[in-house]
């Protein structure tokens, strides 16, 4: 990240805590620290892959940036402007012209009672970008760009397969010509043969339109393919961050190592050393002391139980004193 390229997205020390309420008076008795101090930046036109297991907070990061969930603390600057300083609905609406989101579930994220044309064109009407014939032309253009055809415009979501619906979702995200797209598990609900079509489409669009992606996913092979930089999250924090090749060739954090070794590879009888982690991801409402990974870590020592680890290092950052 050292060269002169401009960082389009800069997130610093982002925290999203959800209050736990209990009792008769609905008092706050604690917090689920879903995101607890996450920082990263993305250069214009690049892709950052954010990986981790369910409950690690990766989706919450994306949603907080999108202002779908209120942040607890931290900053998010986009193109030099502080996004969290925006407070009025009008300002947030303005922000969403530049930043769009793609969702995981192609079945749940499209309104079944709207036609493709109105799904893709809705944002154009809301933002008063285009209407009437102009809107129709723009929608037709987009729908062809994502590999569907003009005949599809008057159909409803149930008439499409999962992969086609995800293409509609992409067209909708592109409707306002955003610079930055937060992709929340965009291919995990798709069949294997469709997954590669969508990944290729996303890469083509990135090259054509100069898009910047935050690619949130749990599939490490997909993330390796699409990302320029990768951040690994565990229990609300980033535990390792590096450019893609460095991270996959030389993972330093014991969690990243275990995660990579746990992926089943489509090569029979491959001799692979697998690190099987015991236990499960602890609850973020009651995280372990010190390094949150220490109860499952094969290398854990006394020191790990006490000392909170911060992400350190120049280009290859890791939050583990043993790994440095």
């Amino acid at each position: 990240m050292s060269d002169a390229k401009k960082n389009l997205v800069e997130v610093k020390d982002l925290k999203t805590h959800f209050p736990i309420r209990a009792g008769l008076l609905n008092k706050t008795v604690g917090h689920v620290k879903a995101v607890d101090g996450v920082s990263f930046s993305i250069e214009e036109g690049k892709t950052l892959g954010l990986v981790g297991e369910s409950g690690c907070g990766k989706t919450t990061v994306g949603r907080t940036m999108m202002r779908l969930i209120p942040k607890t603390d931290g900053s998010f600057s986009f193109d030099g402007e502080e996004m969290f300083a925006f407070t009025t609905a009008g300002q947030i609406k303005q922000m969403r012209r530049e930043i769009q989101m793609m969702f995981q579930d192609p079945y749940g994220s499209l309104n079944p009672r709207m036609t493709v044309e109105s799904i893709v064109g809705e944002a154009m009407t809301v933002h008063r970008v285009a209407s009437g014939k102009d809107r129709r032309d723009r929608v037709a253009n987009l729908i062809e760009k994502v590999g569907l055809s003009v005949q599809h415009l008057n159909r409803y979501p149930h008439e499409f397969s999962g992969g086609q619906r995800q293409r509609i979702g992409i067209a909708r995200a592109l409707a306002l010509e955003p610079k930055f797209i937060i992709c929340d598990e965009p291919v995990s609900a798709l069949d294997v043969s469709i997954q590669s079509q969508i990944i290729n489409l996303m890469q083509d669009l990135q090259a054509e339109l100069g898009l910047t992606y935050l690619f949130v996913a749990h599939d490490l092979a997909v993330v390796e393919h699409i990302s320029d930089y990768v951040a690994v999250m565990y229990l609300g924090r980033i535990v390792e961050y590096a450019d893609r090749d460095t991270l996959y060739d030389n993972p330093l954090h014991p969690y990243t190592q275990a995660l990579l070794s746990a992926i089943p590879e489509p090569i029979p009888n491959k001799d692979k050393k697998r690190i099987v982690l015991g236990g499960e991801v602890p609850s973020p409402s009651n995280p372990p002391s010190g390094c949150p990974f220490h109860p499952r870590c094969p290398l854990a020592e006394e020191r790990c139980k006490e000392e909170v680890q911060t992400l350190e290092g120049a280009d290859h950052k890791v939050a583990c004193w043993k790994a440095r």
Binding site: S161, Q164, S193, S196, A221
Partner: peptide, 20 residues
Amino acid sequence: QSLPRLGEKKERLDVIGGNV
């Protein structure tokens, strides 16, 4: 062929065209 694999640095994935 269409599967992204770990450690395989491919520019583009091969695809099976069409839909199920």
